[in-house]
Design a binder for these strands. Structure first.
Lengths: 250, 250
DNA sequence: GTTCAGTCTTTTGTCTTATAAAAGACATAA
DNA sequence: TTATGTCTTTTATAAGACAAAAGACTGAAC
Protein backbone atom coordinates (compact mmCIF):
# COMPACT_ATOMS: atom_id res chain seq x y z
CA UNK A 1 0.00 0.00 0.00
CA UNK A 2 1.09 3.52 -0.74
CA UNK A 3 1.31 4.80 2.81
CA UNK A 4 3.00 8.10 2.02
CA UNK A 5 0.90 9.51 -0.75
CA UNK A 6 1.88 13.03 0.14
CA UNK A 7 5.59 12.79 -0.45
CA UNK A 8 6.01 13.97 -3.99
CA UNK A 9 9.76 13.50 -3.97
CA UNK A 10 9.78 9.92 -5.18
CA UNK A 11 6.91 9.84 -7.64
CA UNK A 12 4.39 12.45 -8.82
CA UNK A 13 2.28 9.31 -8.86
CA UNK A 14 -0.45 9.52 -11.47
CA UNK A 15 -2.03 6.64 -9.54
CA UNK A 16 -2.27 8.61 -6.31
CA UNK A 17 -5.19 7.81 -4.12
CA UNK A 18 -5.93 8.81 -0.52
CA UNK A 19 -5.50 6.33 2.27
CA UNK A 20 -9.19 5.73 2.88
CA UNK A 21 -9.69 4.85 -0.75
CA UNK A 22 -6.85 2.35 -0.67
CA UNK A 23 -8.54 0.79 2.35
CA UNK A 24 -11.82 0.75 0.46
CA UNK A 25 -10.17 -1.13 -2.40
CA UNK A 26 -8.75 -3.69 0.04
CA UNK A 27 -12.14 -4.26 1.66
CA UNK A 28 -13.69 -4.52 -1.79
CA UNK A 29 -11.16 -7.14 -2.76
CA UNK A 30 -11.98 -9.18 0.34
CA UNK A 31 -15.66 -8.87 -0.47
CA UNK A 32 -15.11 -9.94 -4.04
CA UNK A 33 -12.94 -12.87 -2.92
CA UNK A 34 -15.78 -14.03 -0.69
CA UNK A 35 -13.90 -13.60 2.57
CA UNK A 36 -17.22 -12.54 4.09
CA UNK A 37 -20.50 -13.92 2.78
CA UNK A 38 -23.66 -11.89 2.06
CA UNK A 39 -25.51 -11.31 5.32
CA UNK A 40 -22.37 -11.85 7.43
CA UNK A 41 -20.84 -9.19 9.62
CA UNK A 42 -17.46 -7.92 8.52
CA UNK A 43 -14.81 -7.26 11.20
CA UNK A 44 -15.40 -4.21 13.38
CA UNK A 45 -13.98 -0.86 12.40
CA UNK A 46 -11.32 -1.03 15.09
CA UNK A 47 -10.28 -4.55 14.06
CA UNK A 48 -9.92 -3.43 10.47
CA UNK A 49 -8.04 -0.36 11.67
CA UNK A 50 -5.49 -2.61 13.39
CA UNK A 51 -5.33 -4.97 10.42
CA UNK A 52 -4.61 -2.16 7.96
CA UNK A 53 -2.63 -0.11 10.44
CA UNK A 54 -4.71 3.07 10.11
CA UNK A 55 -7.12 4.89 12.41
CA UNK A 56 -10.71 3.88 12.98
CA UNK A 57 -11.86 7.10 11.31
CA UNK A 58 -10.09 6.20 8.09
CA UNK A 59 -11.63 2.73 7.96
CA UNK A 60 -14.91 4.41 8.73
CA UNK A 61 -14.69 6.73 5.74
CA UNK A 62 -13.96 3.77 3.47
CA UNK A 63 -16.97 1.88 4.82
CA UNK A 64 -19.11 5.03 4.56
CA UNK A 65 -18.64 5.07 0.81
CA UNK A 66 -19.39 1.38 0.47
CA UNK A 67 -22.53 1.76 2.56
CA UNK A 68 -23.62 4.61 0.27
CA UNK A 69 -23.16 2.23 -2.67
CA UNK A 70 -25.33 -0.39 -0.97
CA UNK A 71 -22.47 -2.86 -0.72
CA UNK A 72 -22.48 -2.82 3.07
CA UNK A 73 -25.14 -2.11 5.67
CA UNK A 74 -24.31 -0.48 9.01
CA UNK A 75 -26.21 -1.14 12.23
CA UNK A 76 -25.21 0.89 15.24
CA UNK A 77 -24.19 -1.21 18.22
CA UNK A 78 -24.30 -4.42 16.15
CA UNK A 79 -21.80 -4.18 13.34
CA UNK A 80 -21.44 -3.76 9.60
CA UNK A 81 -22.90 -6.41 7.30
CA UNK A 82 -22.44 -7.52 3.73
CA UNK A 83 -25.56 -6.49 1.81
CA UNK A 84 -27.68 -9.38 0.54
CA UNK A 85 -30.54 -9.84 -1.88
CA UNK A 86 -32.26 -12.04 0.66
CA UNK A 87 -32.96 -8.83 2.56
CA UNK A 88 -36.42 -7.76 1.41
CA UNK A 89 -35.40 -4.09 1.61
CA UNK A 90 -32.96 -4.59 -1.24
CA UNK A 91 -35.77 -5.96 -3.35
CA UNK A 92 -37.53 -2.80 -4.43
CA UNK A 93 -34.18 -1.43 -5.60
CA UNK A 94 -34.33 -3.78 -8.57
CA UNK A 95 -38.06 -3.93 -9.29
CA UNK A 96 -39.51 -0.46 -9.39
CA UNK A 97 -43.05 -1.54 -10.02
CA UNK A 98 -45.82 -0.37 -7.73
CA UNK A 99 -49.63 -0.56 -7.94
CA UNK A 100 -51.49 2.51 -9.19
CA UNK A 101 -53.47 2.35 -6.00
CA UNK A 102 -53.36 0.26 -2.88
CA UNK A 103 -50.54 -1.49 -1.07
CA UNK A 104 -47.43 -3.12 -2.47
CA UNK A 105 -48.25 -6.62 -3.72
CA UNK A 106 -46.23 -9.75 -3.00
CA UNK A 107 -44.71 -10.99 -6.25
CA UNK A 108 -44.36 -14.49 -7.68
CA UNK A 109 -41.92 -15.54 -10.35
CA UNK A 110 -43.29 -18.16 -12.77
CA UNK A 111 -40.48 -19.77 -14.80
CA UNK A 112 -41.54 -20.73 -18.31
CA UNK A 113 -38.46 -21.85 -20.10
CA UNK A 114 -34.71 -22.08 -19.54
CA UNK A 115 -32.22 -23.31 -22.12
CA UNK A 116 -28.69 -23.00 -23.40
CA UNK A 117 -27.56 -21.37 -26.60
CA UNK A 118 -24.68 -19.55 -28.24
CA UNK A 119 -24.41 -15.79 -27.90
CA UNK A 120 -25.50 -13.74 -30.89
CA UNK A 121 -23.77 -10.48 -31.71
CA UNK A 122 -26.09 -8.32 -29.59
CA UNK A 123 -26.06 -10.45 -26.42
CA UNK A 124 -22.29 -10.94 -26.72
CA UNK A 125 -21.80 -7.19 -26.88
CA UNK A 126 -24.07 -6.51 -23.91
CA UNK A 127 -22.42 -9.15 -21.72
CA UNK A 128 -18.86 -8.55 -22.90
CA UNK A 129 -18.58 -12.10 -24.30
CA UNK A 130 -17.16 -13.44 -27.53
CA UNK A 131 -19.85 -14.11 -30.15
CA UNK A 132 -20.74 -17.78 -29.97
CA UNK A 133 -19.90 -18.08 -26.26
CA UNK A 134 -22.31 -20.27 -24.27
CA UNK A 135 -25.24 -18.42 -22.74
CA UNK A 136 -28.43 -19.25 -20.90
CA UNK A 137 -31.79 -17.92 -22.09
CA UNK A 138 -34.60 -17.86 -19.59
CA UNK A 139 -38.17 -16.73 -19.92
CA UNK A 140 -40.49 -16.11 -17.05
CA UNK A 141 -43.63 -14.36 -15.93
CA UNK A 142 -43.89 -12.12 -12.91
CA UNK A 143 -47.22 -12.02 -11.12
CA UNK A 144 -48.20 -9.32 -8.68
CA UNK A 145 -51.26 -9.95 -6.56
CA UNK A 146 -52.26 -12.81 -8.86
CA UNK A 147 -52.07 -10.74 -12.04
CA UNK A 148 -49.49 -11.40 -14.79
CA UNK A 149 -47.67 -8.08 -15.06
CA UNK A 150 -44.17 -8.65 -16.44
CA UNK A 151 -42.82 -11.01 -19.10
CA UNK A 152 -39.03 -11.27 -18.88
CA UNK A 153 -36.44 -12.66 -21.28
CA UNK A 154 -33.16 -13.04 -19.44
CA UNK A 155 -29.72 -13.73 -20.90
CA UNK A 156 -26.86 -14.96 -18.71
CA UNK A 157 -23.25 -16.02 -19.36
CA UNK A 158 -23.31 -19.84 -19.37
CA UNK A 159 -20.02 -20.15 -17.56
CA UNK A 160 -21.15 -18.50 -14.37
CA UNK A 161 -24.40 -20.43 -13.96
CA UNK A 162 -23.35 -24.00 -14.69
CA UNK A 163 -26.27 -26.10 -13.50
CA UNK A 164 -29.07 -23.58 -13.92
CA UNK A 165 -32.14 -25.33 -15.36
CA UNK A 166 -35.87 -24.81 -15.46
CA UNK A 167 -36.15 -27.28 -12.60
CA UNK A 168 -33.79 -25.31 -10.40
CA UNK A 169 -35.89 -22.22 -11.03
CA UNK A 170 -39.13 -24.01 -10.27
CA UNK A 171 -37.70 -25.40 -7.04
CA UNK A 172 -36.57 -22.03 -5.76
CA UNK A 173 -38.86 -19.69 -3.86
CA UNK A 174 -36.29 -16.93 -3.62
CA UNK A 175 -35.98 -13.89 -5.85
CA UNK A 176 -33.77 -14.45 -8.89
CA UNK A 177 -30.94 -12.28 -7.60
CA UNK A 178 -31.12 -14.02 -4.24
CA UNK A 179 -30.76 -17.35 -6.06
CA UNK A 180 -27.86 -16.08 -8.16
CA UNK A 181 -26.14 -14.85 -5.03
CA UNK A 182 -26.67 -17.88 -2.80
CA UNK A 183 -26.33 -20.67 -5.34
CA UNK A 184 -23.84 -19.28 -7.86
CA UNK A 185 -21.95 -16.70 -5.84
CA UNK A 186 -22.81 -13.98 -8.35
CA UNK A 187 -23.82 -10.76 -6.61
CA UNK A 188 -25.67 -8.09 -8.61
CA UNK A 189 -24.75 -4.68 -7.31
CA UNK A 190 -25.87 -2.20 -9.95
CA UNK A 191 -27.98 -2.05 -13.11
CA UNK A 192 -28.78 0.24 -16.01
CA UNK A 193 -32.28 0.32 -17.46
CA UNK A 194 -33.54 1.73 -20.76
CA UNK A 195 -37.29 2.25 -21.12
CA UNK A 196 -39.46 2.49 -24.21
CA UNK A 197 -43.13 2.11 -25.11
CA UNK A 198 -43.80 -0.65 -27.66
CA UNK A 199 -46.76 -2.45 -29.18
CA UNK A 200 -47.58 -5.88 -27.69
CA UNK A 201 -47.06 -8.87 -29.95
CA UNK A 202 -46.75 -12.65 -29.91
CA UNK A 203 -45.98 -14.51 -26.71
CA UNK A 204 -45.76 -11.37 -24.59
CA UNK A 205 -49.25 -10.20 -25.54
CA UNK A 206 -50.62 -13.69 -24.95
CA UNK A 207 -49.03 -14.27 -21.54
CA UNK A 208 -49.89 -10.80 -20.26
CA UNK A 209 -53.48 -11.12 -21.49
CA UNK A 210 -53.43 -7.93 -23.54
CA UNK A 211 -54.48 -7.35 -27.16
CA UNK A 212 -51.91 -7.44 -29.93
CA UNK A 213 -50.79 -3.89 -30.63
CA UNK A 214 -51.73 -2.51 -27.24
CA UNK A 215 -49.00 -0.48 -25.50
CA UNK A 216 -46.44 -2.17 -23.24
CA UNK A 217 -43.54 -0.72 -21.31
CA UNK A 218 -40.30 -2.29 -22.53
CA UNK A 219 -37.51 -2.27 -19.94
CA UNK A 220 -34.06 -3.39 -21.06
CA UNK A 221 -31.58 -3.98 -18.29
CA UNK A 222 -27.88 -4.70 -17.99
CA UNK A 223 -26.90 -5.77 -14.46
CA UNK A 224 -23.35 -5.61 -13.14
CA UNK A 225 -21.42 -7.44 -10.46
CA UNK A 226 -18.14 -6.37 -8.77
CA UNK A 227 -15.69 -4.53 -10.96
CA UNK A 228 -18.45 -3.25 -13.23
CA UNK A 229 -18.64 -6.58 -14.98
CA UNK A 230 -21.94 -7.12 -16.86
CA UNK A 231 -23.46 -10.50 -15.97
CA UNK A 232 -27.09 -10.22 -16.99
CA UNK A 233 -29.01 -8.79 -19.90
CA UNK A 234 -32.74 -8.69 -19.60
CA UNK A 235 -35.68 -7.55 -21.67
CA UNK A 236 -38.90 -7.08 -19.73
CA UNK A 237 -42.37 -6.31 -21.05
CA UNK A 238 -44.47 -4.55 -18.41
CA UNK A 239 -48.27 -4.37 -18.61
CA UNK A 240 -49.03 -1.01 -17.02
CA UNK A 241 -52.78 -1.12 -16.55
CA UNK A 242 -52.76 -1.45 -12.79
CA UNK A 243 -49.09 -0.90 -12.05
CA UNK A 244 -46.46 1.69 -12.92
CA UNK A 245 -42.71 2.11 -12.89
CA UNK A 246 -41.70 4.44 -10.09
CA UNK A 247 -38.56 6.53 -10.18
CA UNK A 248 -37.15 9.21 -7.95
CA UNK A 249 -35.04 12.02 -9.36
CA UNK A 250 -32.83 13.10 -6.51
CA UNK B 1 -29.20 25.55 19.42
CA UNK B 2 -29.08 22.43 21.54
CA UNK B 3 -25.36 22.37 22.23
CA UNK B 4 -25.46 19.59 24.80
CA UNK B 5 -27.61 16.99 23.17
CA UNK B 6 -26.02 14.30 25.27
CA UNK B 7 -27.02 15.54 28.69
CA UNK B 8 -30.16 13.64 29.45
CA UNK B 9 -30.71 15.30 32.81
CA UNK B 10 -32.94 18.09 31.55
CA UNK B 11 -34.91 16.39 28.80
CA UNK B 12 -34.89 12.86 27.36
CA UNK B 13 -35.53 14.92 24.25
CA UNK B 14 -37.62 13.03 21.71
CA UNK B 15 -36.41 15.71 19.29
CA UNK B 16 -32.75 14.86 19.78
CA UNK B 17 -30.55 15.40 16.80
CA UNK B 18 -26.78 15.40 16.52
CA UNK B 19 -24.91 18.67 16.22
CA UNK B 20 -24.04 18.32 12.54
CA UNK B 21 -27.67 17.82 11.69
CA UNK B 22 -28.68 20.94 13.59
CA UNK B 23 -26.05 22.82 11.59
CA UNK B 24 -27.45 21.30 8.41
CA UNK B 25 -30.90 22.57 9.29
CA UNK B 26 -29.52 26.05 9.89
CA UNK B 27 -27.71 26.10 6.55
CA UNK B 28 -30.84 24.82 4.89
CA UNK B 29 -32.85 27.60 6.43
CA UNK B 30 -30.40 30.19 5.10
CA UNK B 31 -30.60 28.57 1.69
CA UNK B 32 -34.37 28.59 1.76
CA UNK B 33 -34.42 32.21 2.91
CA UNK B 34 -32.29 33.13 -0.08
CA UNK B 35 -29.31 34.32 1.96
CA UNK B 36 -27.11 32.88 -0.81
CA UNK B 37 -28.33 32.75 -4.40
CA UNK B 38 -28.03 29.77 -6.78
CA UNK B 39 -24.54 29.72 -8.24
CA UNK B 40 -23.08 31.76 -5.38
CA UNK B 41 -20.43 30.49 -3.02
CA UNK B 42 -21.55 29.99 0.56
CA UNK B 43 -19.16 31.03 3.36
CA UNK B 44 -16.15 28.77 3.85
CA UNK B 45 -16.30 25.87 6.24
CA UNK B 46 -14.14 27.65 8.79
CA UNK B 47 -16.25 30.82 8.60
CA UNK B 48 -19.39 28.78 9.21
CA UNK B 49 -17.60 26.95 12.01
CA UNK B 50 -16.96 30.28 13.77
CA UNK B 51 -20.49 31.50 13.07
CA UNK B 52 -22.11 28.41 14.56
CA UNK B 53 -19.41 27.93 17.17
CA UNK B 54 -18.55 24.36 16.22
CA UNK B 55 -15.52 22.76 14.58
CA UNK B 56 -14.83 22.76 10.85
CA UNK B 57 -15.32 18.97 10.76
CA UNK B 58 -18.85 19.29 12.05
CA UNK B 59 -19.77 21.93 9.48
CA UNK B 60 -18.15 19.69 6.92
CA UNK B 61 -20.33 16.73 7.78
CA UNK B 62 -23.44 18.90 7.45
CA UNK B 63 -22.31 20.13 4.04
CA UNK B 64 -21.37 16.59 3.01
CA UNK B 65 -24.97 15.52 3.35
CA UNK B 66 -26.27 18.51 1.45
CA UNK B 67 -23.78 17.91 -1.35
CA UNK B 68 -24.99 14.29 -1.52
CA UNK B 69 -28.52 15.66 -1.95
CA UNK B 70 -27.39 17.93 -4.80
CA UNK B 71 -28.24 21.07 -2.86
CA UNK B 72 -24.61 22.22 -2.74
CA UNK B 73 -21.60 21.60 -4.95
CA UNK B 74 -18.08 21.42 -3.55
CA UNK B 75 -14.96 22.43 -5.43
CA UNK B 76 -11.65 21.81 -3.74
CA UNK B 77 -9.55 24.94 -3.39
CA UNK B 78 -12.42 27.17 -4.53
CA UNK B 79 -15.35 26.84 -2.19
CA UNK B 80 -18.83 25.40 -1.83
CA UNK B 81 -21.57 26.67 -4.14
CA UNK B 82 -25.34 26.68 -4.17
CA UNK B 83 -26.48 24.24 -6.87
CA UNK B 84 -28.25 25.84 -9.82
CA UNK B 85 -30.30 24.67 -12.77
CA UNK B 86 -28.29 26.96 -15.02
CA UNK B 87 -25.47 24.47 -14.59
CA UNK B 88 -25.82 22.11 -17.57
CA UNK B 89 -24.68 19.19 -15.44
CA UNK B 90 -27.85 19.45 -13.37
CA UNK B 91 -29.89 19.21 -16.54
CA UNK B 92 -29.77 15.50 -17.23
CA UNK B 93 -30.91 14.88 -13.66
CA UNK B 94 -34.38 16.03 -14.66
CA UNK B 95 -34.61 14.84 -18.25
CA UNK B 96 -33.49 11.26 -18.52
CA UNK B 97 -33.94 10.98 -22.23
CA UNK B 98 -31.05 9.86 -24.42
CA UNK B 99 -30.79 8.84 -28.08
CA UNK B 100 -30.84 5.13 -28.91
CA UNK B 101 -27.61 5.71 -30.73
CA UNK B 102 -25.29 8.64 -31.19
CA UNK B 103 -24.45 11.60 -28.99
CA UNK B 104 -26.67 13.54 -26.63
CA UNK B 105 -28.76 16.05 -28.58
CA UNK B 106 -29.27 19.70 -27.64
CA UNK B 107 -32.91 20.23 -26.70
CA UNK B 108 -35.32 23.03 -27.55
CA UNK B 109 -38.50 23.84 -25.67
CA UNK B 110 -41.38 25.02 -27.88
CA UNK B 111 -44.15 26.64 -25.80
CA UNK B 112 -47.62 26.07 -27.24
CA UNK B 113 -50.05 27.42 -24.72
CA UNK B 114 -50.07 28.91 -21.24
CA UNK B 115 -53.18 29.92 -19.36
CA UNK B 116 -54.76 30.28 -15.95
CA UNK B 117 -57.49 28.11 -14.47
CA UNK B 118 -58.90 26.81 -11.22
CA UNK B 119 -57.51 23.60 -9.75
CA UNK B 120 -59.63 20.49 -10.21
CA UNK B 121 -59.66 17.79 -7.57
CA UNK B 122 -56.71 15.83 -9.02
CA UNK B 123 -54.34 18.77 -9.56
CA UNK B 124 -55.27 20.21 -6.16
CA UNK B 125 -54.40 16.92 -4.50
CA UNK B 126 -51.07 16.60 -6.33
CA UNK B 127 -50.00 20.15 -5.52
CA UNK B 128 -51.39 20.28 -2.02
CA UNK B 129 -53.80 23.10 -2.92
CA UNK B 130 -57.44 23.72 -2.10
CA UNK B 131 -59.77 22.70 -4.96
CA UNK B 132 -60.54 25.82 -6.95
CA UNK B 133 -57.22 27.51 -6.15
CA UNK B 134 -55.65 29.40 -9.07
CA UNK B 135 -53.28 27.36 -11.20
CA UNK B 136 -51.35 27.76 -14.42
CA UNK B 137 -51.65 25.21 -17.22
CA UNK B 138 -48.90 25.13 -19.77
CA UNK B 139 -48.41 22.95 -22.83
CA UNK B 140 -45.19 22.64 -24.72
CA UNK B 141 -43.21 20.48 -27.09
CA UNK B 142 -39.65 19.35 -26.52
CA UNK B 143 -37.51 18.86 -29.58
CA UNK B 144 -34.27 16.92 -29.56
CA UNK B 145 -32.04 17.27 -32.58
CA UNK B 146 -34.91 18.81 -34.53
CA UNK B 147 -37.34 15.99 -33.79
CA UNK B 148 -40.47 16.46 -31.67
CA UNK B 149 -40.00 13.92 -28.87
CA UNK B 150 -41.95 15.03 -25.80
CA UNK B 151 -45.34 16.69 -25.36
CA UNK B 152 -45.72 18.11 -21.85
CA UNK B 153 -48.75 19.34 -19.92
CA UNK B 154 -47.54 21.25 -16.88
CA UNK B 155 -49.57 22.40 -13.88
CA UNK B 156 -48.24 25.06 -11.49
CA UNK B 157 -49.64 26.85 -8.43
CA UNK B 158 -50.74 30.27 -9.70
CA UNK B 159 -49.56 32.09 -6.60
CA UNK B 160 -45.89 31.28 -7.06
CA UNK B 161 -45.63 32.22 -10.74
CA UNK B 162 -47.50 35.51 -10.88
CA UNK B 163 -46.61 36.93 -14.29
CA UNK B 164 -45.91 33.69 -16.16
CA UNK B 165 -47.38 33.92 -19.67
CA UNK B 166 -46.84 32.32 -23.05
CA UNK B 167 -44.80 35.37 -24.01
CA UNK B 168 -42.45 34.99 -21.08
CA UNK B 169 -41.89 31.39 -22.10
CA UNK B 170 -41.26 32.31 -25.72
CA UNK B 171 -38.80 35.01 -24.70
CA UNK B 172 -36.74 32.69 -22.50
CA UNK B 173 -33.98 30.50 -23.87
CA UNK B 174 -33.26 28.85 -20.53
CA UNK B 175 -34.53 25.49 -19.36
CA UNK B 176 -37.86 25.69 -17.54
CA UNK B 177 -36.39 24.98 -14.12
CA UNK B 178 -33.68 27.56 -14.73
CA UNK B 179 -36.42 30.09 -15.50
CA UNK B 180 -38.42 29.12 -12.43
CA UNK B 181 -35.32 29.51 -10.31
CA UNK B 182 -34.01 32.80 -11.70
CA UNK B 183 -37.30 34.59 -12.35
CA UNK B 184 -39.60 33.27 -9.63
CA UNK B 185 -37.17 32.13 -6.95
CA UNK B 186 -38.65 28.64 -6.98
CA UNK B 187 -35.92 25.99 -6.85
CA UNK B 188 -36.81 22.41 -7.82
CA UNK B 189 -34.71 20.00 -5.82
CA UNK B 190 -36.36 16.62 -6.17
CA UNK B 191 -39.02 14.87 -8.23
CA UNK B 192 -41.00 11.65 -8.36
CA UNK B 193 -41.89 10.08 -11.69
CA UNK B 194 -44.43 7.40 -12.55
CA UNK B 195 -44.10 5.73 -15.95
CA UNK B 196 -46.68 3.88 -18.04
CA UNK B 197 -47.14 2.87 -21.67
CA UNK B 198 -50.26 4.33 -23.28
CA UNK B 199 -51.84 4.61 -26.72
CA UNK B 200 -51.32 7.91 -28.52
CA UNK B 201 -54.41 10.05 -29.05
CA UNK B 202 -55.53 13.55 -29.98
CA UNK B 203 -53.14 16.48 -29.72
CA UNK B 204 -50.26 14.41 -28.45
CA UNK B 205 -50.36 12.03 -31.43
CA UNK B 206 -50.62 14.95 -33.80
CA UNK B 207 -47.78 17.03 -32.37
CA UNK B 208 -45.44 14.07 -32.02
CA UNK B 209 -46.22 12.90 -35.56
CA UNK B 210 -47.24 9.40 -34.59
CA UNK B 211 -50.33 7.40 -35.50
CA UNK B 212 -53.33 7.35 -33.19
CA UNK B 213 -53.09 4.27 -31.03
CA UNK B 214 -49.35 3.83 -31.37
CA UNK B 215 -47.47 3.33 -28.08
CA UNK B 216 -46.17 6.33 -26.11
CA UNK B 217 -44.31 6.51 -22.83
CA UNK B 218 -46.36 8.47 -20.31
CA UNK B 219 -44.28 10.12 -17.57
CA UNK B 220 -46.14 11.75 -14.70
CA UNK B 221 -44.01 13.90 -12.45
CA UNK B 222 -44.42 15.72 -9.17
CA UNK B 223 -41.53 18.10 -8.45
CA UNK B 224 -40.70 19.42 -4.99
CA UNK B 225 -38.94 22.47 -3.64
CA UNK B 226 -37.45 22.99 -0.15
CA UNK B 227 -39.31 21.35 2.69
CA UNK B 228 -40.73 18.69 0.40
CA UNK B 229 -43.34 21.10 -0.90
CA UNK B 230 -44.84 20.02 -4.26
CA UNK B 231 -44.78 22.90 -6.75
CA UNK B 232 -45.20 21.25 -10.14
CA UNK B 233 -47.29 18.49 -11.59
CA UNK B 234 -46.48 17.39 -15.09
CA UNK B 235 -47.73 14.83 -17.58
CA UNK B 236 -45.30 14.10 -20.42
CA UNK B 237 -45.86 11.96 -23.49
CA UNK B 238 -42.58 10.61 -24.84
CA UNK B 239 -42.21 9.27 -28.38
CA UNK B 240 -39.61 6.54 -27.98
CA UNK B 241 -38.71 5.66 -31.54
CA UNK B 242 -35.24 7.18 -31.49
CA UNK B 243 -34.87 8.00 -27.81
CA UNK B 244 -35.27 6.16 -24.54
CA UNK B 245 -35.62 6.89 -20.84
CA UNK B 246 -32.43 5.98 -19.04
CA UNK B 247 -32.32 4.99 -15.40
CA UNK B 248 -29.60 3.68 -13.15
CA UNK B 249 -30.40 1.32 -10.29
CA UNK B 250 -27.67 1.89 -7.76
C1' DG C 1 -37.03 -21.69 38.02
C1' DT C 2 -38.39 -17.08 36.11
C1' DT C 3 -38.23 -12.51 35.64
C1' DC C 4 -36.53 -8.16 35.92
C1' DA C 5 -33.18 -4.59 36.56
C1' DG C 6 -28.71 -3.26 36.43
C1' DT C 7 -23.85 -3.63 34.55
C1' DC C 8 -20.33 -4.60 31.25
C1' DT C 9 -18.54 -5.17 26.64
C1' DT C 10 -18.61 -4.44 21.91
C1' DT C 11 -20.07 -2.00 18.24
C1' DT C 12 -21.02 2.15 15.31
C1' DG C 13 -21.69 7.33 15.68
C1' DT C 14 -20.18 12.11 16.79
C1' DC C 15 -16.99 15.81 17.37
C1' DT C 16 -12.50 18.01 17.47
C1' DT C 17 -7.87 19.00 15.99
C1' DA C 18 -3.93 19.05 12.98
C1' DT C 19 -2.20 18.96 8.62
C1' DA C 20 -2.21 18.12 3.39
C1' DA C 21 -3.65 19.06 -1.28
C1' DA C 22 -5.86 22.24 -4.84
C1' DA C 23 -6.64 26.49 -6.78
C1' DG C 24 -5.63 30.82 -7.90
C1' DA C 25 -3.70 35.53 -7.22
C1' DC C 26 0.34 38.01 -7.21
C1' DA C 27 5.03 39.24 -7.39
C1' DT C 28 9.30 38.73 -9.61
C1' DA C 29 12.94 37.20 -12.56
C1' DA C 30 14.37 35.69 -17.19
C1' DT D 1 5.89 38.79 -22.25
C1' DT D 2 6.31 34.67 -20.19
C1' DA D 3 7.30 31.67 -17.05
C1' DT D 4 8.26 30.45 -12.09
C1' DG D 5 7.93 30.59 -7.43
C1' DT D 6 5.39 32.03 -3.12
C1' DC D 7 1.49 33.17 -0.34
C1' DT D 8 -3.35 32.82 0.94
C1' DT D 9 -7.66 30.69 0.98
C1' DT D 10 -10.25 26.95 0.27
C1' DT D 11 -11.75 21.97 0.69
C1' DA D 12 -9.84 17.13 1.80
C1' DT D 13 -7.64 13.73 4.71
C1' DA D 14 -6.23 11.49 8.90
C1' DA D 15 -6.18 10.48 13.66
C1' DG D 16 -7.87 10.51 18.37
C1' DA D 17 -11.14 10.95 22.22
C1' DC D 18 -15.42 10.08 23.66
C1' DA D 19 -20.80 9.20 23.34
C1' DA D 20 -24.83 6.33 22.15
C1' DA D 21 -26.92 1.77 20.92
C1' DA D 22 -27.34 -2.97 21.28
C1' DG D 23 -27.15 -6.98 23.47
C1' DA D 24 -25.24 -10.47 26.60
C1' DC D 25 -24.58 -11.52 31.16
C1' DT D 26 -25.16 -11.36 36.24
C1' DG D 27 -27.58 -11.67 40.16
C1' DA D 28 -31.30 -10.39 43.27
C1' DA D 29 -36.33 -10.77 44.07
C1' DC D 30 -40.16 -13.49 43.97
Amino acid sequence: MNRSPHSRAAAPSPTFSPLYRQIKDLILKSLEAGEWQPGDAIPSESELAVRFNVSQGTVRKAIDEMAAENLLVRRQGKGTFVATHSDPRSFFRFLRLIPNEGELQPSTSVPIECGRAKAGADVARMLGLAPGAPIIIMRRLLELGGEAVVFDEIYLPGELFQDLTLDVLKQSDKSLYDLFESRYGVRMIRAEERLRAVAAEGVAAELLHVDEGSPLLLVERVAFTYGNKPVEWRRGFYATRNFHYFNELA
